[in-house]
């Protein structure tokens, strides 16, 4: 083993930024965000089970500007992880590996997640908005 510490791949400094690396990093980042979102889901369910006062606390938090920001971010993170997850599952069965397909599918994840987020929030506000 050579004693010099050689850089290990992947080292982000040497690559030009491209959609492939962005989609991969964002998949992990949204995954981490969604774990924290899951903890909020658990907290909200516990509040719903424990009483009207606790639930009023949840809805007033969810309706505040910060709550809306969190919910909006959570929706996008879920939409992205969901769409890009489909892409990963398709890659697991060997589909979509040509560079052209890879780049196109990456953009589908990014733009599709924004469209899905918009659809969900249009549905939320046409159903009566956040309580």
């Amino acid at each position: 083993m050579p004693s010099t510490a050689r850089p290990l791949s992947p080292h982000l400094q040497v690559y030009r930024r491209q959609i492939q690396m962005v989609t991969s990093i964002v998949h992990r980042a949204t995954g981490i965000i969604l774990v924290f979102g899951g903890l909020l889901v658990a907290a909200a369910l516990l509040a719903l089970a424990s009483g009207a006062d606790a639930w009023a606390c949840v809805t007033s938090l969810a309706g505040s500007w910060f709550g809306l920001l969190v919910l909006f971010g959570w929706t996008w993170a879920l939409a992205y992880h969901w769409l890009n997850g489909i892409r990963h599952l398709l890659q697991d069965v060997g589909w979509g590996y040509s560079i052209a397909q890879f780049v196109r599918n990456g953009w589908i994840s990014v733009i599709g997640s924004l469209i899905l987020t918009a659809i969900v929030w249009v549905a939320v506000y046409s159903c009566g908005g956040i309580a």
Binding site: L48, T75, I86, L89, I130
Partner: peptide, 30 residues
């Protein structure tokens, strides 16, 4: 992968449930 495939369906269901409860009061959410 198994949990991912399950979540493809279950996450859509969960978001649909949340959207259907938008604006709902405590009793109907329960």
């Amino acid at each position: 992968r198994i949990t991912a495939v399950a979540l493809l369906v279950l996450a859509v269901y969960f978001v649909a449930l949340l959207v259907s409860l938008a604006g709902a009061d405590y009793a109907s959410a329960r």
